[in-house]
Design a binder for these strands. Structure first.
Lengths: 336, 336
DNA sequence: GTATATAAGGAAATCGATTTATATGAATAA
DNA sequence: TTATTCATATAAATCGATTTCCTTATATAC
């Protein structure tokens, strides 16, 4: 009884005295098989412990039932909580439809890996997380009509599907809230200008100030990356001049944490001296001290929607390009 | 110029006026191809933008260059930071060897999904994270000689490979440290007894008390799950009696956070009234207030080792079963 | 009673690579 | 000079399913 010799469809067909085609019909629950035949084959499949070779199936029917997820690999930990939450949403949907997830952590510079995977017919579709705007290869994906969806990356182009959050609105919520608390001197710690996220949030900030007829102080716009340590470094200059802001809006939660560290280091207090507000509502946000007030992105839902849209495209249930913006929400905690 | 008609190896062979075999040799960098022929074929591959179909390749050579990772799906977020760190380590190694990662979030009850994947020849090997001890199907994996490695799951059996941390030693480090701080009344908040992690840490605790000749108080052993909320609930009874412990060792960091929440809720202070110590050193540990003293598991390294061992098994570079224990380390912060 | 669906099933081609076995001419060894 | 090796290359089989295209018998419609 050598368990290592795999039973194939031919073995079942031979034992059952039918053609492979008939066995295939039974496996795939297709019609044109008599009840009696079907039962006999099903029994044999169990007895002989047959399991279809999924690779062979994929080669033949040209679908792998696998979707790829491109995850940017930054620093040591490529899966921060932001990405984990989106992944959870994606996973929830695709599992329902019997798809699988293939994970591709990619270095930002190195774009060679994913190409061979897409072109190598290994996946049926792709979800792209946190892609910077200037990636050259994305156009080639669209050219070959490969199904893919951006998450949190606005790309207003008929060729591209995306699910994004209402970034501008989120920042406006933040400004309104801080304004209602009596704050009038706003600083903004911006994320990468290579991500639409970063750009949109900064623009939202500028618009919100204009709406409120507040002075826009260019020195209080700190540019940088979506990165705690960089935010910690760059935000230092907010505290050297005599005139300081009283509210600091950050482009994401990790950055807000960096800014709070900086504030503490400079000997000030949050929220007494400075209100700080983040964006995303990652897991840590509620754990830190003071607990972080933030704009919650529906990360899980973002994943859910992206997966649903992708499956629609793959299964041709959708013809139109999808540009979707999900609602954000102000989460009040202790940092304002 | 229809980009959707894929170029195959046959197309290249025809254009080059050679057999498919020769093209295959060029693709795989094999010998027995004249330099001139090789150059000509390489040129054609570029010109015609040929990319091998990886599914076809897998069917033929019976390797998918993909390893699967079984991740338990608990609550809403299946990827907590603990798992993310391990994954980062795994990813680092397998990418170097041109393997890919397929992620399988599984519900603890439902064991049907992974079987078809393993048996369906979709992956070359499997890494199992946080598997409970009583899974029935694992034996069937061993029976068919499928390569797999446990992470953080001790299974002292010649059939199984694993990489684990020195759990007992970690708890002993914790006890020693707390003892050196003058603590003498130890409580232990245990994780699931279905995971060897949980069992080993509890046993480590008992042994450490014995070593130190401290009284073992059964009421101060709180059993539960590796879960913050459950720890919060169950640890309540540590604080109702007059005689309370002065040090609380927790089976993981999330639990420690739950216990600290409980302590605060009961109106006590950490570390003044109670020293609390966790296990793992997840990302949040350093962010909370007070920053959590904990036993660091080399999570990233755990992933690195698991991947290396698995690749060795897959490529038959290793005959012996591997049972590996990695060093843990005391990280002193503010909760003790 | 004949024409036409419909159900049941099979044979061969196919998916796109690799593996295996074989052939040929040139270089080297005996 | 003959035998052997080596480099180069090919044809055919193979991997294990599905797809496509038939065939046959039976049921239904007209």
């Amino acid at each position: 009884m050598n368990k290592n010799i795999k039973v194939t469809i031919s073995d079942i067909a031979r034992e059952a005295g039918v053609s492979k085609m008939t066995v295939s019909r039974v496996i795939n629950d297709a019609s044109n098989v008599a009840k009696k035949t079907r039962t006999k084959i099903q029994k044999l499949i169990k007895e002989m412990d047959y399991q279809p070779n999924l690779i062979a199936r994929s080669l033949s029917n040209k679908r792998t039932m696998t979707i790829g997820i491109l995850v940017p690999k930054r620093e040591k930990i490529f899966l921060d909580n932001y990405i984990a939450q989106i992944l959870a949403g994606v996973s929830e949907i695709i599992k329902k439809h019997d798809y699988r997830i293939m994970l591709f952590p990619i270095d930002i510079e190195d774009d060679s890996g994913y190409v061979s995977i897409v072109r190598g017919n290994l996946i049926d579709g792709l979800i792209l997380l946190k892609i910077s705007s200037d990636d050259t290869w994305i156009n080639s994906l669209a050219e070959i009509d490969f199904p893919f969806v951006f998450v949190n990356h606005r790309r207003e182009d008929e060729k591209f599907n995306f699910v994004d959050s209402e970034n501008k609105k989120g920042i406006k919520l933040a400004v309104d809230y801080l304004y209602s608390l009596g704050r009038r001197d706003f600083a903004f710690v911006a994320g990468s200008m290579n991500e639409t996220n970063g750009v949109d949030r900064l623009n939202g900030f500028k618009e919100a100030l204009k709406d409120k007829k507040l002075i826009f102080n260019d020195e209080w716009i700190i540019k940088g990356e979506f990165n705690k340590d960089i935010a910690f470094e760059n935000s230092a200059k907010l505290f050297i001049k005599k005139k300081k802001p009283d509210a600091i809006i950050c482009s994401d939660d990790y950055m807000a944490i960096g800014v709070i560290d900086r504030i503490i280091k400079e000997g000030f207090r949050v929220p007494q001296d400075f209100s700080v507000i983040g964006f995303d509502d990652i897991e840590i946000a509620s754990y830190i001290n003071p607990a972080l007030t933030t704009i919650r992105q529906p990360l899980h839902e973002l994943g859910v929607r992206a997966a649903s849209i992708l499956l629609n495209i793959i299964n041709k249930r959708n013809v139109n390009t999808v540009h979707e913006f999900l609602e954000v929400e102000l989460i009040k905690r202790d940092s304002c």
